[in-house]
């Protein structure tokens, strides 16, 4: 018997430096992890608190969802109908997805399945760079370049409309959607591709019949996160949409978005006023929508892991 192993367990049980470092590291990581929850709950509580008084006193759910009259500063009678704002946001997001989905899926498939080596790396960097362009710059492009282009191209009186904001928003959402979609494609094991190729499947058959079905959930969540982005985007939409309350009959009508309304009006309201509360109610509504979209995306992604 060596003297080492004859030591009693009590002597061996000594907390050394690495034990304390481990504890400290765990504690720090815990704070970092939990802060995400603290912030989200904090924001939730704050937004609800600010909108709560208005919801109790003045809020009329029927008016909110069915009236297009958003007149918070009317002297005769204030009305808080958000229908036009909801439709405005939805129509811009819908238009944006029409543009972003084909672009981003096409880009993701090209980067993930076709491009190799330098092309692939360059494209990935470019796409990430595209995602980093500030939204106000996009809005600026909408306001100046796109506006003129739309007026010229379609011979319409005003170029700040659903089409303009949708195109801008679509281009803004596409990079992040591309990145997520490409990650989903990358998560498909290569052995599936090799097996299908060895059986004589063409490149396109491999993608269509093996890779895309296998990556389906990730692709759906990419689209959902794009939609979430669309609902939440403010500055670019404010600048490119025309910002006029309107139920659009065509892509060439100006609209106003929920987010843009909050951004444009909040600075001019008295804290605690009905108008102030109404804007926070819009915020709560937006919060709920994006919450549901993100939750759905998360559920869908979980679906992948299970299968």
């Amino acid at each position: 018997m060596s003297s080492k192993s004859s030591k009693s367990g009590e002597v061996l049980d000594k907390r050394d430096l690495s034990w304390y470092v481990d504890r400290l590291a765990q504690a720090l990581m815990f704070v970092g992890g939990i802060s995400a929850i603290i912030f989200i709950v904090g924001i939730f509580v704050f937004v609800f608190k600010e909108g709560f008084a208005f919801i109790l006193d003045r809020f009329d759910i029927v008016e909110f969802f069915t009236s297009i009259n958003w007149r918070p500063t009317s002297v005769a009678k204030e009305t808080y109908g958000a229908l036009a704002l909801i439709v405005g946001t939805a129509s811009i997001t819908g238009m944006a997805m029409l543009i972003a989905i084909p672009f981003s899926l096409g880009a993701a498939i090209y980067i993930g399945e076709f491009a190799t080596g330098k092309t692939r790396e360059t494209l990935k960097v470019m796409v990430e760079l595209l995602a980093a362009i500030p939204s106000v710059v996009w809005g600026f492009i909408g306001l100046t370049i796109m506006n003129g282009v739309i007026i010229e191209l379609f011979n319409v009186p005003i170029g700040l409309n659903v089409l303009n904001a949708g195109v801008i928003l679509g281009l803004m959402a596409a990079p992040i959607m591309t990145t997520i979609a490409e990650d989903a494609l990358k998560a498909v094991p290569d052995k599936y591709r090799e097996a299908a190729e060895a059986m004589g499947a063409t490149k396109w058959q491999v993608i269509r019949k093996v890779v895309l079905p296998a990556a389906k959930n990730g692709l759906v969540s990419a689209v959902l996160l794009g939609i979430g982005r669309g609902f939440g985007e403010t500055m670019a939409v404010l600048m490119a949409s025309g910002h006029s309350i309107n139920i659009p009959g065509s892509p060439f009508d100006s609209v106003r978005a929920l987010t843009a309304t909050i951004a444009a009006e909040l600075g001019e309201t008295a804290v605690g006023s009905n108008h102030y509360g109404a804007l926070f109610t819009l915020g709560i509504f937006l919060f709920l929508i994006t919450f549901v979209i993100n939750l759905t995306a998360d559920r869908v992604v979980r679906g992948i892991r299970r299968s």
Binding site: K191, Y192, E194, A195, A196, A198, V210, P213, A214, S307
Partner: peptide, 9 residues
């Protein structure tokens, strides 16, 4: 192939 590869179908 050496390792069984059931396609995800």
């Amino acid at each position: 192939f050496p390792l069984p590869t059931g396609l995800p179908l």
